[in-house]
Every structure is written in structure tokens, then in C-alpha cells.
Design a protein around this nucleic acid. Structure first.
Length: 786
DNA sequence: TGACCGCGTCTTTTT
DNA sequence: GACGCGGTCA
């Protein structure tokens, strides 16, 4: 098998071990995916049938990529029959074919987070509980945690610890909400994401003969990102691999960052105890990053106690130290980062797409985005509202769900009055209450309004009947039309897209485009299915689309754009240049994780993930002040910066960060008194804090520096407006020739000349040691010194 | 019933 | 700074 030559010794050993359980500890950038794909190819060559191999990933994208790489090695024909996919998609497939045995139909709906949130909310309301105390989000979390740990409502209600904890947290009726939630889901023939794993476990627990069947079907099980599995996932794998123990799990305990979603790092830490005969392989050679980055990351993660010992190393070049930048504010941070981005791009060593800006929270993206736009940098933001969570998309999907499963109450609630057809909240509530009273679905109530004695006027009754009739028609079409034709009919009949043609507001246009994109996706789905000689039914499309996320639709990946995303979203990716911004206490590490060592370690792993995304250059930035929740806070540098051995760090601009004991400089210390006293500064406050600036530059410039004018934008300079500059042949430069200016990267320089280049003003500036630079003034943020 | 305003609330989010 | 909620009014 020639392809094995492309592996290093350890990778090869991991690939060739097929006689039992194995754990592959794959350090960052150590070729984890390579090992997994080659291992599967190896198994196929060894004679394992493709359909006997089960490979589980965490994203559809990962599964797809792996599948295509395997296809490259062994041919598409073989790769096609692999059981490869996410936990959720594989087990929802299995659940659909076994649904009857656990009281669901094979058309069951999948509730996304918003659906279950809405259901929980209505249950809390129905029980007359205060939703300030029983916060739906909190309840949702608790139910999710319970399910991830395979605690059913019955088990919950008889678990003294949980009941006490709830009593103590003043939410004693939690178990009741959980019970009703489960009943409601079942009645709606719906499962949430967690149910897909929980119900699989129930299926295997209660039906040994079914478990046995799948055990025999899957002769080899592989799991990617094992460090992020939860108990429910662990047990499914455990059950399926029992007997043959041909299981290979791959992961990196140092990159376990999803505990808040129920992931349990103990799964990987305890693997050797759970599978007594397990072999452990360690992939420690990093192929991604420079020595500097690898060593810096090592010195950081070394501060964690709970980890599997390993020595990640690289034979790559030394590279540059990680640059640490201290800025005054979040605004300046964003401005400076965007300047660096421009410099990197202009150096022609890097394209925009080589660069990523990573942050802890999505809220941080705003300032960055503003500055990117201002600097004319093309960028792409990941995260935020995903395509499938957009209202118009959810509306269309809701119709599809209702057509496939009329019991789906959340879908019904969503489309019954979308677009508005005069069925208001009161009416909907009456229908739902009547349904609950008779123990039937809302769909049935609407089918015989008289029989169920629904207290509505005849006009309302007619509207309900009409709506039901329309859906019924779609249901009949379902068996004749394919998914594309049916959705097309839904959109046209309901008038959903017609609404978007009537006005041309940007929102409306965007809605229309989104709907069209969805329709295209359905058409594509149908074409693929038809080409494969399969039926392209709406049910199949729904089954797939319900488990899709934005992460999976990464079209235009080769566009030259800077990537902005959270560190979580960056896991598994790599970039030549990485900026990790907002490295401040209470932000990163998050204030929420400060009181537990375990959570703090997870934050540190998260930072480790961030740094190890970088191939060549890495920047860490932090600000001294930051707007959060509409308020200005003075903040301190993250403790994690100290965790990195300082010999891998470079503090170029300022010398104020002490390498020794105390990170907090005295001015900040004084101000923390305000903060502790509860005094907050708002954006409009005139009380702004300007720290003394100490740099290596000649101090003479600083004596005259007016800190209030730092980062003065040249466009807003009173000297001349840019339109005038365009019109006049002899324009007045926005910065005076002969004067000194300050550039955040090059330092102090003297303006040699200013000229027009097209519509843009451009200046030649002598930065002394750093050389003479020609800068476009609309990009370069210069500060004119008196 | 729908539009609008003030108020309290915020993490991360592979499915 | 943004969103969802509850209240009010047309």
C-alpha cells in the first residue's frame, strides 16, 4: 500500500493498528485528518466492506471533506458506502428506520434550538410560572444537560441530588417542565438535537436485538474529535463496539473546548480505563506552525494540570516571536489590527485570505468590522445568524415540516399566520388549549372544529379550515411532486415570496435572495438524488437540512477575504497569520469561568486552540478599555499572556507590560477602584482615561502630544474636504508637508511630500530607521504632531 | 392585531 | 449595542 509511505512513523503505526481499541492523541497540526482518512483507506484495502465502517465526526463539513479525501485514495465507488457523518445525522438515520419501536414515526421532525426554546417558553407560561425565575434559556440548558447525561424525566424526578439542586436554585418545578417537554415532543412526533442521541441510547438499551444488528453491521468504528464527545455519545459508541472493540478514537485533550455543550473531557482522559486493552498512539510532530508558535503554545498549555502528557514539536522554521500589542481601547485595537492587515497585504507576502482575526465573543466583531470596512479590507464574518436560522428560511422549512408531519406543533405555530392570514395569537392559543384538553394534536382539532367545540367565530373557523385545506393539498402533492416542485408550490401558493416583491427595501431583497438560495439548494438536492437514481422526497430533504448549519455552507472559500470568527468557530482551521484580539481578564478568560479551575483550564485550552491556528505569524492584542454592554470598562491584560514563556513573545510598541510580577500598571489600578465602586463610564462621558505612554521613541514628540487627538481621522480633518481635493488641481494637503506625524506601526516620521493618486491622497513619509514609506492617507491612520 | 417605546438582559454554540 | 419583552395606543 503505497500511500502509507506518505505517513510518518507514528502516523503509520496508528493507521496500521486494527486489532482492537486505540486512542490517537493528535496534537495540533499533527495530521489528524490524514491519519483518519488513511486509516479508513487502509481498512478498505484490508478487506473491510465500506458499509461495515462507521466514522463519526462533529460537523457535516468534516465528514464531507474526509469522504472526498478517501475517495481520492480508494475511489468514489467505495467511499460512497461508508457510514460517515455526524453523530446526529447517522443516528437520526438509524432512528428513522427504527422509529416505530420507540413510539415515533419515520417522518419525525427535528426541533432546532429555537423550536425547543419556544416550546419550553410556552410550557412555562402554561404552568403559570414566572419566566424571570424559570428563564427558558436556563431551563433549556438544564434539560439539555440532563439528556446529554442520559437522565430521562423519570430518572430526573427520582434523583434527589438534582431535585435538591433545583430546590436550592429556586426552580423546584424543573422536573415537571422537563416531563411535559418530553411529552409534548413525543406528541408532536419531534425530537430535539439531544434526543437524537438520547433516543438512540434508549433504543439500544431497550432493544438488545436491534443493538445486536448494528453491532454486527459496524465492524469498525472511528470517532473524530473524541475530546468533545458527551456521555450520550460515549455510551452509544461503547455499546456498538462491545464485543469486537474495533474502535479508533482520535482527538486532542488540549483542544477540548465544548464542555458548555455537555462535552466531557474525561471521555478522552479515561479512554484507557474504559477500554482496558487500548493502545495509545501519540502524534506529536506539528506540520503546521513555526517553532516559535508551537513552543509558545506548548508553554501555555503546560500550565494546565489535567492533561495527557505530550511533547508537540516541529521541524518547521523558527519563525518570528508572537507580537503582543497593547492598545488604549477596543476601537484602537480594531484600527491597529486593520492597519497591520493592510501592511501584511501590501507586503505581498500574504493575501487577505491568509489572515484570520479571532475573538472570544461574537460581540467583539462589530468594531473590527467597522475598521475593516473603513480600511477597504474585504472580510468575511462567520457566526451570527446562520442561514438556516433566518426567519424567512425557517418559515419555508416550517411549511415543509408541517406537510411531512402535521403533528409538528412548533411548525404549525410558525406558519399558521405567516404570511398574515388573520389567525391571531388568541385563536392559536384556543386551538392549542382545545387540543391539549382532548389529548389530540392541533391539526386534528382544526380538522373538526365542531366536534372539539372550538370556541371561535365562524369567520375564524373558516380561516382555520382554509389553512388546513391548503396544507392538506400540499400533503397530497407530496407523493407526486419532488421536493423542489413542492417547495416551489408552497412558496407560490402561500405568497411568501410575493411579499418580497412588493417593496424593494434592503430587508425585503435580502429575504427574497435567501428564499431563492434555499430553493436552489433544494433543486440541487433533487438533482443529486435523481442522478443517483433515488427519490428526492421532501422528507429526505428535511432530514438533511434540519441537521445542516452555516458551517457547512462555506462556499466561495477561495475568495480573498480576511476571516473574522470566534475561537470556537476556528477549531480545525489554519491560517498563515492569526490575530487573537481582546486578550483581557473577564473577556478571555471569560468572567463566567473564573470561579472554577476546570473552566479556567478550558479557557486556556481555547486560547491554545487560537494560537495553534497560526502557521507563520501570530499577534495577540489587548485593550486597556473596552465597551461592553454599552458601557466603558477599564480592563486588565489576560493572565494567559503571562502563561506564555516571555521568550516567545515580542512587545514592540510599549514597554509598559512588566514581564515580572505585576501586570497591572498603577493607573489602571487606581481606576479599578472606580470600577469596583460600581462607577461606569459611558461612551459620552468626558471622563476618559489616557495612560502615560512610554515608548522607545524620542520623548520630545510626546510632550506636545495631545492624547485626546490620538488616531485623528484624516477624512474629518478641518483643513479640506476630500471632494474639494478631487476638484481642485492645486489641493491643500490634509497633512502638512514638513511636519511630524505618528504612525502606529512605523512610529514618528516626517512628511516629505503629499500628492494625489487618482482620487486618493498619498504621502511620502520618512520614518527614519524604518525607512521612507509611501502611504495612502485614507488607509494609514496618522496623527499629526504639533 | 400590529406598530412603537422603554426596560432589563447579556458567553462560547460542531448538531 | 442589540434583542426580546411587556406595556400602550391607534
Amino acid at each position: 500500500m503505497r500511500f502509507l509511505d506518505e505517513l510518518n512513523d507514528n502516523q503509520r503505526k496508528a493507521v496500521e493498528f486494527v486489532d482492537g481499541a486505540s486512542l490517537v492523541i493528535a496534537g495540533a497540526g499533527s495530521g489528524k485528518t490524514r491519519v483518519l482518512t488513511y486509516k479508513i483507506a487502509y481498512l478498505l484495502k484490508k478487506g473491510f466492506a465500506p458499509s461495515s465502517i462507521l466514522a463519526l465526526t462533529f460537523t457535516n463539513k468534516a465528514a464531507r471533506e474526509m469522504k472526498s479525501r478517501i475517495a481520492d485514495l480508494v475511489g468514489e465507488r467505495m467511499a460512497r458506502y461508508l457510514w460517515m457523518g455526524t453523530f446526529h445525522s447517522i443516528f437520526s438515520r438509524i432512528l428513522r428506520s427504527e422509529a416505530g419501536t420507540i413510539g415515533f414515526t419515520s417522518n419525525f421532525s427535528i426541533y432546532d434550538t429555537a423550536d425547543s426554546h419556544s416550546l419550553i417558553k410556552s410550557i412555562i407560561k402554561g404552568l403559570n410560572l414566572d419566566d424571570k425565575i424559570y428563564r427558558p434559556g436556563l431551563v433549556q440548558n438544564r434539560i439539555s444537560t440532563a439528556k446529554n447525561n442520559l437522565i430521562t424525566p423519570g430518572a430526573y424526578a427520582s434523583n434527589a441530588d438534582l431535585l435538591n439542586a433545583d430546590k436550592y436554585a429556586r426552580v423546584p418545578r424543573m422536573q415537571e417542565i422537563y416531563r411535559i417537554y418530553t411529552e409534548k415532543c413525543k406528541q408532536s412526533d419531534a425530537m430535539d438535537f439531544d434526543d437524537l442521541l438520547l433516543q438512540t441510547n434508549i433504543l439500544f438499551r431497550d432493544h438488545p436485538e436491534i443493538l445486536q444488528r448494528y453491532r454486527e453491521r459496524f465492524n469498525f468504528i472511528l470517532v473524530d474529535e473524541y475530546q468533545d464527545t458527551n456521555y450520550a455519545q460515549y455510551l452509544i459508541i461503547r455499546r456498538l463496539s462491545e464485543g469486537h472493540e474495533r474502535i479508533c478514537v482520535v482527538g486532542d485533550d488540549s483542544q477540548s473546548i465544548y464542555s458548555f455543550r455537555g462535552a466531557n473531557i474525561d471521555n478522552i482522559l479515561q479512554f484507557k480505563n474504559n477500554y482496558q486493552s487500548a493502545q495509545v498512539f501519540k502524534l506529536e510532530r506539528n506540520y503546521r506552525s513555526t517553532k516559535m508558535i508551537v513552543n509558545a503554545a506548548n508553554s501555555l498549555i503546560d500550565k494546565n494540570k489535567n492533561r495527557i502528557p505530550k511533547e508537540v514539536y516541529t521541524e518547521n522554521q523558527d519563525g518570528e516571536k508572537i507580537k503582543v500589542l497593547q492598545l488604549y481601547s477596543d476601537f484602537e485595537e480594531a484600527a491597529v489590527v486593520s492597519e497591520y492587515v493592510i501592511e501584511l497585504k501590501e507586503s505581498e507576502e500574504y493575501a487577505y485570505k491568509d489572515i484570520a482575526i479571532l475573538y472570544r465573543t461574537n460581540a467583539q466583531s462589530r468594531v473590527l468590522e467597522d475598521q475593516m470596512r473603513k480600511g477597504g479590507i474585504s472580510y468575511r464574518i462567520y457566526g451570527g445568524l446562520s442561514f438556516y436560522q433566518r426567519k424567512e428560511i425557517k418559515d419555508v422549512i416550517a411549511y415543509c415540516r408541517l406537510i411531512c408531519n402535521p403533528a409538528d406543533e412548533e411548525a404549525l405555530k410558525r406558519c399558521i399566520n405567516t404570511p398574515a392570514r388573520g389567525i391571531g395569537e388568541t385563536t392559536v392559543n384556543k386551538v392549542l388549549e382545545t387540543a391539549a384538553l382532548h389529548g389530540v394534536t392541533a391539526w386534528e382539532v382544526m380538522g373538526d372544529i365542531l366536534k372539539y367545540n372550538l370556541p371561535v367565530h365562524s369567520g375564524t373557523a373558516n380561516k382555520l379550515t382554509d389553512f388546513r385545506g391548503m396544507i392538506s393539498t400540499f400533503m397530497e402533492q407530496k407523493d407526486v411532486l419532488d421536493a423542489y416542485q413542492l417547495v416551489d408550490s408552497v412558496i407560490k401558493t402561500t405568497g411568501m415570496i410575493r411579499d418580497t416583491y412588493t417593496d424593494n427595501s434592503p430587508e425585503s431583497i435580502s429575504r427574497r435572495e435567501n428564499i431563492e438560495e434555499l430553493v436552489n439548494a433544494i433543486r440541487e438536492f433533487c438533482e443529486i438524488k435523481t442522478n443517483a437514481g433515488e427519490q428526492a422526497s421532501l422528507v429526505d430533504f428535511l432530514a438533511e437540512v434540519s441537521l445542516l448549519t452555516d458551517q457547512d455552507t462555506d462556499k466561495n472559500a477561495d475568495e480573498d477575504k480576511v476571516t473574522l470568527m470566534t475561537v470556537h468557530a476556528a477549531k480545525g482551521l489554519e491560517f498563515k497569520v492569526v490575530f487573537v484580539v481582546g486578550m483581557e481578564e473577564e473577556l478571555f478568560p471569560s468572567a463566567f469561568s473564573m470561579d472554577s479551575a476546570r473552566e479556567l483550564e478550558e479557557e486556556r485550552r481555547l486560547f491554545y486552540v487560537a494560537i495553534t491556528r497560526a502557521e507563520e505569524r501570530c499577534f495577540i492584542t489587548y485593550a486597556k478599555s473596552r465597551f461592553r454592554n454599552g458601557q466603558l470598562n477599564f480592563v486588565n491584560p489576560s493572565r494567559f499572556i503571562k502563561d506564555i514563556d516571555s521568550k516567545f513573545l515580542d512587545f514592540p510598541v510599549q514597554q509598559t507590560i512588566p514581564s515580572s510580577s505585576n501586570f497591572v500598571d498603577e493607573e489602571i489600578e487606581n481606576f479599578s477602584g472606580f470600577r469596583n465602586a460600581g462607577t461606569r463610564f459611558t461612551r459620552t462621558s468626558t471622563r476618559t482615561y489616557y495612560p502615560k505612554k512610554q515608548t522607545e521613541e524620542k520623548p520630545v514628540y510626546y510632550d506636545t502630544l495631545n492624547p485626546a487627538r490620538k488616531l485623528t481621522k484624516l477624512e474629518s480633518s478641518p483643513t479640506i474636504s476630500s471632494t474639494n481635493a478631487d476638484l481642485n488641481e492645486t489641493f491643500t494637503p490634509t497633512i502638512p508637508v514638513g511636519k511630524f506625524v505618528k504612525h502606529s506601526m512605523f512610529g514618528i516620521g516626517k512628511v516629505l511630500s503629499v500628492s494625489m493618486s487618482g482620487a486618493n491622497e498619498k504621502a511620502e513619509i520618512d520614518f527614519g530607521e524604518k525607512g521612507v514609506k509611501t502611504l495612502l492617507l485614507k488607509f494609514a491612520k496618522l496623527e499629526v504632531l504639533d
